[in-house]
Structure formats: C-alpha cells, structure tokens
C-alpha cells in the first residue's frame, strides 16, 4: 500500500520532470519478414523510403543537454535493412548519445555483429517467438528461427551489449514457455521479456494470437515463478497494469512512460511517443517543427491522462494506479482501452 503510494508520487514527479530518456527512431518501414502478428504496415517494399540520416540528425541536434542515460532505439520495419546503420550509430555516438536496435535477427550475422559493435551499439533486442516450428509459423518464414538463434548466440557472446530476447506470447507458444526458457538460458541469454499481442494490424483477425483470460493468468504465474530463478531475468513488458501481479512480474510497478520519458520520430517525420500508439496522438513533424520545442511544449495529452477516465476506466477502483493502461491501447474515438489486463485477472 505504502509502496504504491510512493510509486504514484514517483510517477507524478517523473511526469512533471518530463525528461527525455528514450527516443525511438523508426528509420525504415521496410521489413524482410511478414509476421502474422505485426501491428505495423511494414512490407518488403514500403511506400516510404528510409528516412535520410541527415533529417534525423537535424532533429536530435535540437536536443539541449540530453539526459545522461539518453538512448536512441532504432526500430523499423527491420533496421538491419539499412546499409548505413553503422554510420547512423557512429553519428549518434559522436553526439555523446547511446543507441540500440530491435531486430528479428534475420540479417544479424558475424560480420554485422562486429561492425555494429564497432559503431558503438550498446543495446540489442532480438525477437524469438517460440521453438523452431512455432517461431517460423508466427514469423511466416522457414529460416527465421535458425537465423534468430544465430543472432542470439552472437549477441550473448558480447561483453558490451545490454541484450535481451522478447517473445510475443500467443495460443501456440504459451505451452512451450518453459522449453523456450531452457533453450535461451542454454544460449547464454540473461534477460527475457514477454509480451502479449493486441488486436490491431495483421493480428486483428487471427484469434490464435490472443490469450484467453486463463492463459493470461498462466503467463503471469509463469513469469512470477521464473523470476525466482537466478539464471535469467524474466519480466513482463511494460504494456499494462496487472493488478494482483503488480511488482511480481516486473522490477517495478506499471508505469506507461509514453510521452513522459519516451518520444519517437517516425518514418514520415512525425513526432510521437511510442511507435505503436495511435497516430492521432502525433505531436508534430520534424519537417516543420523543432523536435525539442515539441518535446518541451506539447505532449500534454500524455502527461495529463485525466481523459482516460472514461468507459470501463471511469468507475474502476484501480484507476489511480493504472491511469487507463498502456496508451497504445487507446485507438479510434478513445472511448476506452481496447485491452484491460487487470480484468483478465479478476
């Protein structure tokens, strides 16, 4: 109780501070896979070309006194499709900023691993959605498991990388979580993050993607139990407020930092919070606005979340701790979040 009280105060203070710690850069909309659960519109030949590095650098050069832990996280699409990724990374490092990528691992071979490390890559996340058959099914590609495994082995061999594996939990892989855990421990992975899939993008029409309430409870129990083992740090992603499992499945309580500490620059130049948030919450565009001005003068909708007290959240007893769940669950007319994790656990 007391812990929740102080955590709320901590979150209020962070919201007032509004320090930018984490900036997503959607550097390309191209992707070399066609995953069943993809929430974006990425294709092999996207309509958008890659964002020119100079445009991104111009935007981040507006940032005055970046926070010491400020990190640029390069996403896509698939960032490894950018041939100049290492040049991008070196330019970011020249500005005393750190950088990381999120990848499906398909193009992550030994030579690329070394050139990315040389360019100062500091953080890496690789997706692994199951053992061979399940992963290849979800990723819609026969070679993706083998390649992701190769990438994981390389990443785990590095002393420098802050590296984790992420898994989208769905109806097919929920029964193999223990085996996946054993597999990645054996590969030397030290951190594993699990998240669920929500009904937008390609996943929307595929019910196999979504967990039933009982399965979601099973997932929480699995994470809770796994956190008792020292070999690997297992956690639930930041995605939602999980009621009775709060503080048990993550290192801290639920805190959606979108627009509070997290910003993004999307492929079309939009200035936003997390890339998976409804585009109607875009705050500006680097083509016409200074990124830093937008960060400092806009983002009100993220910092004052009273508007989320509507629909099922209006009368919810947990509202003060949850504030309407992750903002990426608010779409369309924003009448209520499309997912409430807590109600799955009641």
């Amino acid at each position: 109780m007391l812990k929740q009280f102080f955590f709320r105060k901590f979150k209020e203070n962070e919201t007032q501070l509004h320090e930018l710690n984490y900036l997503f850069w959607e550097c390309t909309a191209k992707c070399n896979l066609n995953c069943l659960h993809c929430g974006s519109d990425c294709t092999k030949d996207s309509l958008h070309g890659d964002m020119p590095l100079a445009d991104f650098l111009e935007a981040i050069d507006t940032i005055e006194n970046p926070a010491p832990n400020f990190t640029v996280v390069i996403t896509g699409g698939e960032p490894l499709l950018r041939k100049d990724l290492e040049i991008c990374g070196r330019e970011i490092r020249k500005r005393n900023m750190r950088w990381g990528i999120v990848t499906n691992g398909l193009l992550y071979d030994k030579a690329r691993h070394v050139s990315l490390l040389n360019a100062g890559l500091g953080a890496l996340t690789i997706s692994l959605d199951g053992l061979s058959e399940t992963h290849n099914w979800l990723r819609n590609s026969k070679k993706s498991f083998e390649r992701a495994t190769q990438a994981i082995t390389l990443a785990a061999s590095s002393h420098r990388l802050n590296f984790d594996v992420v898994t989208c939990v769905n109806q097919r892989n929920i029964t193999e979580l223990s085996k996946i855990r054993e597999f990645i421990i054996e590969k030397g992975v030290k951190a594993w993050r699990l998240f669920t899939i929500f009904p937008i993008g390609r996943a929307a029409g595929n019910t196999e993607m979504f967990l039933t309430d009982i399965q979601f409870q099973t997932l929480m129990e699995f994470i809770y139990e796994s956190r008792k083992h020292a070999e690997i740090d297992v956690k639930f992603s930041c995605e939602g407020y999980v009621g009775k499992y709060e503080w048990k499945v993550r290192d801290s309580g639920f805190f959606c930092r979108a627009g509070i500490n997290i910003g993004s620059i999307l492929i079309d130049g939009s200035i936003a919070a997390c890339p998976n948030i409804d585009r109607s919450l875009t705050q500006g565009n680097i083509c016409s606005n200074s990124f830093w001005d937008v960060w400092n003068t806009k983002y009100e909708v993220f910092r004052k979340r009273g508007w989320t007290k509507t629909g099922k959240c209006q009368t919810c007893k947990e509202y003060k701790n949850c504030l309407g769940n992750g903002l990426h669950f608010w779409h369309g007319n924003r009448s209520e979040p499309i997912v409430c994790h807590n109600e799955k656990l009641l």
């Binding site: 710690n21 984490y22 997503f24 990381g100 999120v102 420098r160 993050r193 997390c274 992750g326």
Partner: peptide
C-alpha cells in the same frame, strides 16, 4: 519504493536502456 528499477527504461517493443 526500495527500487532502483524505478529508473529503468524500456518500452514493450524497445531495446533495454543502455547504461554501459
């Protein structure tokens, strides 16, 4: 709140913050 983890950043689909 007895937790240095309160300062750890990570969005669902992002990489871990790099403090190294």
């Amino acid at each position: 709140i007895f937790s240095s983890a309160a300062f750890v950043f990570q969005a669902c689909y992002g990489a871990p913050g790099d403090f190294g």
